[in-house]
């Protein structure tokens, strides 16, 4: 069996990546586990959140970036926790300063604290401003093909619809909507949110998604490092299955895999 050919890259703006699994860095036991899980996932792109420093905290406490050096990983700052375009834009300007001019970002503008469903009007407003300011915007959005198209037309470099609610682990609840998006969008479509286990990631990739972003499914697994490896394998398997092209579904399979002739004990025709 050969490895996936060198030409199969995930292209985001001007950059190419071999791994199609993007992982978050939240909810792990400690930074050592974070690092081990990310190594096992094979992810090249890892999301980080931007938060106020704790003025009372000892600044010599370990820092996430000591474990995930920006030279080694592509850090994808997010706007998690932002509820308005204004907050999201300010957060990503700070992220760009923090990461020395880095412009690849994940925009998410939330609509409510219970469902973490995106607020699409604010998302669109933020995306427009960020693109105008030179950011390469990967955008978390509802699985609505019209919103996805608007975001693509604005110049977002990746469309990231939810598969189900953030942190729910409910899997791909509406594959048909994902399909509508995949048929209409030319930039990469990355499922963001809702993946619960490896098969969910494989299903997303088999549908033709360009990548999967997950955090909780790995961090809250019984053994996060093992689940990170499972996710890597699932994304690779799903991608290969998509590229191979699955057989058509048939209600009846009157076409067994073994020969129809030569069964013992039968009269020769």
């Amino acid at each position: 069996m050969t490895e996936p050919e060198d030409t199969d890259f995930l292209t985001l703006g001007a950059r190419r990546f071999r791994s199609r699994l993007l992982v978050g860095t939240g909810k792990y036991r400690d930074f050592t586990q974070t690092r081990e899980a990310i190594e096992a996932s094979g992810a090249e792109i890892v999301t980080v959140a931007i938060r106020r420093v704790n003025l009372g905290q000892n600044p010599d406490e370990p820092n996430l970036l000591d474990y995930l050096p920006p030279e080694r990983f592509t850090l994808l700052p997010n706007t998690a926790g932002c509820y308005t375009a204004e907050e999201a834009v300010r957060t990503l300007r700070l992220a760009r300063e923090l990461l020395d001019g880095h412009t690849l970002v994940k925009l998410e503008v939330l609509g409510d604290a219970e469902t973490l469903y995106p607020n699409m009007p604010e998302t669109l407003k933020a995306a427009e401003r960020l693109v105008a300011e030179g950011f390469q915007v990967m955008v978390y959005c509802s699985d609505d093909p019209i919103q996805a198209k608007l975001l693509e037309e604005m110049g977002c470099v990746a469309i990231m619809p939810l598969a189900s609610l953030i942190g729910s682990g409910m899997g791909i609840l509406n594959p048909w909507n994902l399909r509508l998006i995949l048929e209409r969008i030319r930039v990469p479509v990355i499922v963001d949110a809702g993946v619960g286990t490896a098969s969910d990631a494989a299903i997303a990739m088999e549908l033709g998604c360009d990548g999967v972003l997950t955090n909780t499914a790995i961090a809250h697994a019984g053994d996060p490092v093992r689940m990170a490896r499972a996710m890597r394998l699932a994304v690779e398997a799903g991608r290969e299955a998509y590229r191979a092209g699955r057989m058509p579904r048939k209600f009846y399979a009157a076409d067994p895999s073994s020969p129809l002739t030569g069964v013992i004990g039968r009269p020769t025709p």
Partner: peptide
């Protein structure tokens, strides 16, 4: 003033 760092997040 807002002073920020990168922290774990998804």
């Amino acid at each position: 003033l807002e002073i920020v760092v990168a922290v774990g997040g998804g």
